[in-house]
């Protein structure tokens, strides 16, 4: 924590001196800004992926868990009897809040994506669907299946676990991979800044010698480099984050929140990418300070 305080202080304090005593290094400066911009840009997408996957996993898990369907396919003559049997069984099953037959309109809506509007339902062998809303901990799917098979042989219970489990698993895996990507991007940024800082320190060995001859403390010399690299990284990461956010906003939106069309942030989630320049600055601060400490210890 005191490290962060140090950092804030050294960045805020006007340090005209430590900024000018080290000659400007155009190339490593531009390189640092570019790398941190590119990394922040990538990190915005990794974050968007993470956040979206998380949101999707939550929604699928809750939406799919609430409802189940019983599908009844039977010869026309038996349909009505079996439907009545199904409703009776459901009525007696613990954990079922309600059950109702989907209306023709609803069935049509379900099929519209595949057959287009105005599907002539009466000419298609479409099974009757009963929507089951669970309550509390839900019902015992196996027990219900067993009862249905004896009382309504044409009824098939679909409690969506089959769909839900892999979807939720995939979404949470994506969520994990997204965070992993963010961490790797951070580590890569740290490594690149370490390389750039080492190059700058090596190029300025003579300057460091002169500064020491006139009584400069290592603290002062390190700060000249740390401040420079931290500010450049914050600048670069700021630019990269901005471009990344514009790109995320410009992604086409779908009518519903599908995975690809729903990629992005929502609500307070928009604040998440705004932390990237700060995190970049923290990474740069500690990477450069470690590099400077090492170099200054090495140069006698």
């Amino acid at each position: 924590m005191s490290g962060l305080l140090d950092m804030a202080q050294s960045l805020i304090r006007p340090q005209g001196a430590s900024d000018t005593v080290v000659p400007p290094t155009g190339f490593t400066a531009r390189l640092t800004v570019f790398v941190s911009a590119a990394m922040a840009f990538l990190a915005v997408f990794a974050l968007a992926l993470t956040v979206s996957a998380n949101r999707l996993a939550d929604r699928w898990a809750s939406e799919l868990a609430e409802s189940a369907t019983v599908r009844i396919s039977a010869p026309p003559a038996e349909v009505e009897i079996q439907v009545a049997a199904v409703l009776r069984v459901l009525d007696q099953t613990a954990g079922v809040a309600s059950a109702r037959i989907l209306t023709t309109e609803e069935q049509r809506a379900l099929l519209a994506p595949w057959f287009g509007p105005d599907v002539p339902l009466d000419t298609l062998p479409v099974p009757t669907l009963v929507e089951v809303i669970q309550d509390g901990d839900g019902f015992d799917a196996e027990g219900l299946r067993l009862r249905l098979s004896t009382e309504a042989p044409g009824a098939v219970l679909d409690d969506h676990t089959r769909w839900r489990a892999p979807l939720v698993q995939a979404a949470s895996r994506l969520n994990f991979l997204g965070w992993l990507a963010v961490i790797l991007i951070g580590a890569t940024t740290g490594a690149m800044i370490t390389l750039a800082a080492n190059a700058a320190l090596a190029a300025n060995a003579q300057v460091i010698t002169v500064l020491r001859l006139v009584g400069a403390h290592d603290r002062f010399i390190a700060q000249a480099f740390v401040r420079r690299f931290t500010l450049r990284t914050i600048l670069g990461a700021g630019i990269g984050t901005l471009i990344g956010l514009v790109a995320v906003i410009a992604l086409p939106n779908g009518p519903d929140d599908g995975f690809l069309t729903g990629l992005g942030f929502s609500g307070a989630g928009w604040l998440l990418p705004l932390t990237l320049p700060i995190l970049g600055g923290i990474v740069a601060f500690f990477a450069t300070r470690a590099a400077a400490d090492r170099t200054l210890k090495g140069l006698r």
Binding site: Q15, A17, S18, V21, L211, G215, A216, F220
Partner: peptide
């Protein structure tokens, strides 16, 4: 600036 360097490295002007 070179002459003032010993001051500058102490953060003084």
């Amino acid at each position: 600036e070179n002459v003032a360097l010993p001051l500058m490295v102490q953060g003084k002007r």
